[in-house]
């Protein structure tokens, strides 16, 4: 009996070596350890043994069963491992195939550039304030030190709605409303749409956008103006950017300056972008005219301030190298997608 068992064990282990798949394994398991399997068969013969032999044989049977179970388990694990590897190998994909995208949209480039500007100025403590686009002659001109029939009106061809109302030609009108309604310290920017009766071409649009800035407080100087604009210019054009002031004229600031930044394309050497000047004009600025302050009930002997006006459309076109301002208002999807 013992021999028979040993023989069965040896045979089983031998057969196990040839097993390649789960089906074969299950068949072998049933053949040996199933209810009608060989091991059970042998056990049935136990009754014929003398009583003192039975426990020994019983132990042996159990040991062999346990060993075979373990071995069967190992083989099964091996088979499973191999199958998994085969499946994974089979599932390999071409990783160079394109990803599945869910299409998102995007902001208009004027909006995204404005967001950059707003972030810069909000971080410097500027509030963002909006003003009306339909303005009175007073807020758009007179309060800004531009009386009727003043030559400064020549440069701003105005759309009139009635004698009194017009479409604002500059966001500077918002300055006045802010100064009338707030007490210093004032630190605001006012972005918005402005209108001028310019014929449409590659650099002119009758509808465009400005970002007005205004600071009024005690002891504000031109050096502060330059400090703020340098900060802005470095964020927009890069940390190496230099800022240059040139004297100019705006009725509502005195002194007035045009502000140039060093050309980022050539580093100031002169190139096509800056028309060989090495500088690019980006905005007009100046110290708020005492007449303007006084007109808003702010004593120019106590307070001073500065104002600046950034042309958002020009900033957008230069920043993204957009060759024609009309593209901004045409809204061709292929154009818009380039900025999303």
């Amino acid at each position: 009996m013992k021999e028979k068992l040993e023989q069965l064990r040896a045979q089983a282990l031998d057969s196990l070596k040839g097993i390649k798949d789960k089906k074969g394994l299950d068949e072998l398991r049933i053949k040996i350890m199933g209810k009608k399997g060989q091991l059970t068969e042998i056990l049935r013969g136990m009754g014929a043994l003398p009583a003192e032999e039975r426990p020994k044989i019983g132990q042996l049977v159990n040991r062999i069963r346990q060993e075979l179970e373990e071995r069967f388990g190992e083989v099964e694990a091996e088979i499973e491992e191999r199958l998994k590897k085969e499946r994974l190998a089979f599932e390999t994909v071409d990783i160079t195939m394109p990803g599945k995208k869910r299409r998102t949209g995007g902001l208009h480039p004027l909006s995204s550039v404005l967001e950059v500007l707003i972030d810069i100025f909000v971080s410097m403590g500027f509030d963002v304030v909006d003003g009306p686009e339909v303005e009175t002659d007073y807020y758009n001109f007179e309060a800004l030190n531009v009386p009727k029939d003043h030559p400064a009106r020549d440069t701003q061809d105005t759309f009139y709605l009635t004698d009194k109302f017009l479409l604002r030609t500059q966001t500077s009108s918002a300055q006045i409303r802010v100064m009338e309604n707030r007490k210093p310290p004032i630190r605001i920017i006012s972005p918005g749409r402005v209108y001028r009766a310019d014929e449409v071409d590659a650099t002119h649009s009758p509808v465009f956008h400005q970002v007005e800035g205004l600071v009024v407080d005690r002891g504000i100087t031109m050096c502060d103006l330059k400090g703020v604009l340098e900060q802005f210019a470095r964020e927009i054009y890069g940390p190496e950017t230099k800022v240059r002031f040139r004297p100019s004229f705006f009725p509502f600031t005195e002194p007035s300056v045009e502000v140039d930044v060093s050309c980022g394309e050539c580093g100031g050497q002169g190139c096509r972008v800056c028309k060989d000047a090495g500088w690019i004009e980006i905005l007009g600025a100046g110290m708020v005219h005492p007449n303007v302050l006084a007109g808003c009930g702010i004593d120019p002997e106590i307070y001073s301030g500065f104002a600046f006006g950034i042309g958002l459309d020009r900033l957008t076109t230069t920043r993204h190298k957009i060759s024609d301002i009309r593209l901004l208002f045409e809204n061709d999807l292929r154009f818009l997608e380039q900025f999303s």
């Binding site: 909000v122 971080s123 500027f126 509030d127 002891g219 504000i220 502060d224 604009l229 340098e230």
Partner: peptide
């Protein structure tokens, strides 16, 4: 260019 002096104001 100088950093602006004056009261700290909050922008939003």
């Amino acid at each position: 260019g100088t950093p602006m002096k004056g009261l700290v104001v909050r922008g939003r």
